[in-house]
Amino acid sequence: MSEPLVKVESVSVTLGGTSVLSEVSLDLAPGRITTLIGPNGAGKSTLARLVLGLVTPDQGTVVRRRGLRVGYMPQHLNIDDSLPLTVDRFLWLGASGPTAARRAALERAGVAHLRRRAVQKLSGGEMQRVLLARALLRKPDLLVLDEPAQGVDVAGQNALYGLLKDVRDELGCAILLISHDLHLVMAATDEVICLQRHVCCSGSPETVSRDPAYHELFGPTAGTPNLALYTHDHDHDHDLDGNAHHHHHDHEGPCNHD
């Protein structure tokens, strides 16, 4: 495996007196797709923000390769109405270059018709696609997407994941995806990391798919080749206040550790 773009090593983050992440490690290498899954409040967004350099760890280290070009697609973005800004200008802020490049990026994200629209007039889904176009336009080494499949139907997710796979193949970039869905992840994912303040388990979807329960659930996704089902049972204990017991695992596969 080539040199990681970002190396997160036994990082702990405490926000407002609450431990959000503890002893988390993560490597993002070129050409690899990593999906973070976990329940709400599991620290997925914090881990992504750590990778992006928006959060500094209380313990541990985050090493980013010098000159790393990052494309980031946040969940949503609110832009003040007082700022007159078209989609085209918004993209220009992310990466200067010819209009044709911006048009092509929008085309790719399936929103070419929105180029002259004011950003404030976009729906949530349209804004997400515009953000994706802006991220792609930067030709990133690392692409971070926060819940890209949120509010998108299964066919839409399939199309989106197909696009991301093409982008990865084309640019050879690393992709970090956050998914709130514990069951549906991108089939092309090289690694699935399940987070519950610590890394409970991680592994390739293939490893995961050997789980008999996975086959049981496979039916409904037939015909959507970019989606994989992943079953996950939280059969280890977490305290009521959410503090997980500190059992750290480097094994691959579903979260069965009894």
């Binding site: 992006l52 070009r69 980031y72 700022l83 800004l85 918004f90 802020l93």
Partner: peptide, 18 residues
């Protein structure tokens, strides 16, 4: 101009983009 406008649109996105 571009930096000023970038942090005005969204400071986090601007920071991520360098």
């Amino acid at each position: 101009w571009r930096a000023l406008l970038s942090i005005t649109v969204n400071e986090e996105l601007a920071q991520v983009e360098g």
